[in-house]
Nucleic acid binder design. Structure first.
Lengths: 118, 118
DNA sequence: TCAACTATTCATGAAGTATTGAATTATTTG
DNA sequence: CAAATAATTCAATACTTCATGAATAGTTGA
């Protein structure tokens, strides 16, 4: 991903309500959630939410589809992954120290822990 | 990393000049660069640069040390890695599709490429 | 078609961020 | 000590983003 696409994505992510929104939508998976359900869940006014949703959609981090009178939103994994990849691989140039810090705890090897035997 | 620390870091990163700054400092490694050298390299005025540097330092993404009349700046790998980790592991909950998208090209396995033999 | 519902857009004002250049502080060198 | 250098702070201005509530547009079902 180029910087010109990563910048709007980072701006979109630099907001508490929108981070909460991404977390909620990640949990909902590809089924997604309609705007009303999100509004109730996060306690954000409809007009405010609409603004946040459009910010995230323009940044290519989420996508929407119409279903009857609802608009259903779901995450765009490629957009999210591409943004994180931009930070890790392009911006930080795969710096080993940075890479080591950003592994998932579950996938971290712990070479300093002694192996206890018998 | 908690959201309260990730948010200022994301805000700090959501700026073209500061992304360029991080790239430059990653390249310089732990030796770092003094403010004057950064200013010349990026073509940013001294006062503007000072503002960007302090934004990044307050977000814990870079650190500074004094040396004679210079102030030398270098990246904070833990801060950068922690921020990326927040996005990937906390916010995106290690979603497999997101994780797959944000791997380094060099470390990507390409299971769909056929193995050519003989 | 009318009423109910869902979602977005618009107008407004408040708050935060960006940029410039001049002034200031601190350090080194002659 | 005075001049030169390095960096930060400050004041003023422009711009962008945030937040609220009212108005609008599209969809469904009686």
């Amino acid at each position: 991903m180029e910087q010109s696409k990563a910048l709007p994505a980072l701006s979109a992510l630099a907001n508490e309500a929108r981070l909460d929104l991404i977390k909620l939508l990640i949990g909902a998976g590809q089924a997604g959630l309609c705007a009303g359900a999100i509004s109730k869940n996060l306690g954000i006014s409809a007009s405010r939410l609409s603004f946040h949703l459009s910010t995230l959609e323009q940044a290519n981090l989420i996508q929407s589809r119409k279903s009857a009178r609802n608009v259903i939103y779901s995450v765009n994994p490629a957009g999210l992954g591409g943004t994180i990849s931009y930070l890790l691989n392009d911006c930080c140039q795969e710096n080993p120290e940075v890479v080591a810090c950003c592994r998932a705890p579950s996938s971290q090897d712990r070479p300093n822990l002694p192996v206890l035997e018998s």
